[in-house]
């Protein structure tokens, strides 16, 4: 999702035989639904998996501001501009909650940002696509934030306390994001033929990347299975993706737009939509760094960091100066 293909560093799902006494006691707490807090003992692999997952999630929020920032100066009305700014501010806040949660596991903000800027840390594939029209802003709120909500609601119940609590706060704010996007889509879909065409075009381009956000099928994945055992991951990628399709298709129908999938079909027996094959080569290519905007996204973040250095340094200089004054007084 925002955190995709998270490594646990383990080659097989740990059974009782693989675990030390401490690890077994820890697993028993997980199984009993007890929340793990920062000062509790935890296996090193659990800690590392969470650092990767939570930091990837945080990086995604921050990089996720960029596609939308692209349209702030070109929003069609002042109200929509203010609303878009509010959404972008929320993403900054979400990044902060998540970095804070990751830091409880013993990493510093510097380390996390260093990893992002050096291209070592991942962020969600979806933010490597460009926003080419105002309708894209609608499509992102509707499909991307909509997918995020589906992923994040179960995370509110995950085993690590700080992550779960951060997710509760994020979910409350995320609902406005999804509605904001759908509100834009409704206006366009119910507008002039040109506006409706723009909305359809945005849906055509964002549909498949949004489905890819959930990650590939993880029926065979050791990482997913171990994450499930640790109750970090509560549902499989396929389950969440199916949920997204089932929820979103009726929403598209209401708009009078067509989902760009000729194989999309209601399956009465399953009580769910059947949908077409995803082109995973595109997903892998984007993760490798060859999506439309990977290099631009990273360059923008690094530039912002470097050009903001003087401001951060000035804040510290000012703080030190005031502290020295007080000490002398």
């Amino acid at each position: 999702m925002y955190a995709q293909l998270v490594e646990t560093g383990l080659k097989k799902v740990q059974t009782d035989a693989d675990m030390s006494a401490e690890e077994q006691a820890f697993q028993a707490r997980i199984d009993a639904g007890i929340r793990i807090e920062p000062k509790d003992w935890m296996p090193d692999a659990y800690r590392k998996t969470l650092v990767r997952q939570i930091s990837q999630h945080a990086h995604s929020e921050i990089v996720g501001q960029l596609p939308e920032g692209n349209w702030v100066t070109r929003a069609p009305t002042l109200k929509r501009k203010a609303i878009l700014l509010a959404k972008i501010q929320d993403e900054a806040g979400h990044g902060l909650y998540l970095y804070s949660a990751a830091e409880t596991l013993g990493v510093s903000r510097d380390e996390l940002l260093e990893a992002l800027h050096a291209g070592k840390a991942k962020y969600s594939s979806i933010f490597n696509y460009p926003t080419l029209s105002w309708a894209d802003i609608g499509a992102i709120g509707w499909l991307v934030d909509g997918s995020a909500i589906i992923n994040q609601i179960p995370l509110c119940r995950c085993s690590y306390g700080p992550y779960a609590r951060a997710m509760i706060r994020v979910c409350k704010e995320e609902s406005f994001h999804a509605r904001q996007g759908y509100d834009i889509m409704m206006k366009l879909a119910q507008g002039s033929p040109e506006q409706k065409a723009m909305a359809q075009d945005a849906l055509n381009r964002w549909w498949w990347p949004s489905l890819m956000m959930f990650g590939p099928s993880d029926a065979e994945s050791v990482n997913s299975a171990q994450s499930s055992k640790w109750r970090i991951k509560l549902f499989s990628n396929d389950e969440l993706r199916q949920r997204m399709v089932d929820q979103t298709v009726p929403q598209a129908e209401f708009l009078g737009l067509s989902v760009p999938d000729p194989d999309l079909k209601w399956n009465e027996e399953r009580g769910s939509y059947d949908f077409g094959e995803i082109d995973w080569s595109e997903f892998n290519n984007v993760l490798k760094g060859n999506g439309p905007c990977n290099r631009e996204r990273l360059r923008t973040r690094v530039t912002a960091w470097e050009e903001g250095a003087w401001f951060r340094e000035a804040l510290v200089a000012h703080a030190d100066k005031q502290a020295a004054k007080e000490a002398a007084a």
Binding site: S108, H117, V316
Partner: peptide, 16 residues
């Protein structure tokens, strides 16, 4: 498209 990541200042001089 070339990204030359300048490694000079990716850490803060003093942690807040």
């Amino acid at each position: 498209d070339e990204v030359t990541i300048n490694k000079q200042e990716t850490t803060m001089s003093k942690e807040w």
